[in-house]
């Protein structure tokens, strides 16, 4: 879908480049996660791909053609979901949706989607009366209303309760099953784990790591099992090599003779990989 080759970008007022020669590919039908702490160039990359910024170096091919050669019709094919509210607050949800729908040649049945995300019964309310979560869901409907081939999502579940976050994630998965492609930017590693086929971690304007979540966990994880058991009056904790576990007498002895409190494989979480690869905390 996208082939990004040696992409660099510098904001006119900055001395240093925000993006420093990154190359990656977004394959058709995949959900690609672009991750990293604030200020490393994720949003800038997304803005370049959505044609909000065009003064870049390097090459971006969309469906094999230079992105710069596309005109406004490019926006017929993409949907952009923002983290911040992007609706006219004194208009109702339906008035907002109808206005944006009229800008596109092809649109979906938005009533169906509004029902799915639990906003249909609130469609006649002004957006100003919406809660944060309702605005996030409305942003999602806005991004999907032109039935995009490519979807850019920035923190699509941020501010949502678990029930509504689950609904949004289900819709994103269904979108992929129908052949849709998405670029996801989020700090919520659970969402990444659940949704992304491949992820790229960005640090200091460069791609520090790129692979599937599973491969990254295998690459960075320790092949160990940690076991916690009761030993007399106290509690003991020991680690064992996962590869030699079946022949490890000491491990087998503990399993057979001790009261086990916890047992965990030391697989790395995406949170751990995030911190390790980018060098910063996800709370930044």
């Amino acid at each position: 879908m996208y082939q990004i080759n040696n992409l660099s970008f510098k904001y006119p007022k900055n001395k240093e480049k925000t993006i420093k020669g990154i190359s990656f590919e977004i394959k058709e039908g995949e959900i690609f996660g672009l991750l990293g702490p604030s200020g490393v160039g994720k949003s800038t990359t997304q803005k370049i791909l959505t044609k909000l910024l065009d003064n870049y170096e390097g090459e971006i091919l969309y469906k094999g053609k230079d992105l710069k050669s596309y005109d406004k019709s490019y926006y017929e094919e993409i949907g952009v979901g923002f983290e911040m509210p992007v609706h006219f607050s004194k208009l109702t949800a339906e008035e907002n949706i109808n206005f944006f729908k009229k800008l596109y040649k092809s649109t979906i049945d938005t009533d169906k989607l509004l029902k799915r995300v639990g906003l249909y019964e609130h469609r006649d309310k002004k957006v100003a009366e919406f809660s944060k979560g309702m605005k996030v869901r409305l942003n999602f409907v806005r991004a999907m209303l032109n039935n995009p081939k490519m979807l850019f999502l920035d923190e699509p579940t941020n501010g949502l309760d678990p029930h509504n976050a689950r609904i949004i994630k289900e819709i994103i998965k269904e979108y992929r099953e129908k052949g849709g492609t998405a670029l996801l930017t989020t700090h919520l590693m659970n969402d990444v784990d659940e949704l992304c086929d491949r992820i790229a971690f960005m640090a200091n304007g460069q791609i520090a790591e790129i692979d599937s979540p599973k491969n990254l966990k295998l690459k960075y994880g320790e092949r160990k099992v940690e076991i916690e058991y009761r030993d007399g009056e106290g509690v003991k904790k020991e680690s064992f090599n996962l590869d030699t576990l079946k022949d490890d007498e000491s491990f087998i002895n503990i399993i057979k003779t001790k009261e086990i409190l916890t047992i965990h494989s030391k697989e790395m979480t995406l949170d751990d990989i995030f911190i390790k690869v980018t060098g910063v905390s996800t709370h930044e």
Binding site: K72, Y75, F82, P85, V86, F88, S89, L103, Y104, K105
Partner: peptide, 14 residues
């Protein structure tokens, strides 16, 4: 203020 300019800028309008 309402952020609507952002979504208009990624719409198929000149």
């Amino acid at each position: 203020q309402e952020g609507t300019i952002r979504t208009l800028l990624v719409s198929p309008i000149s």
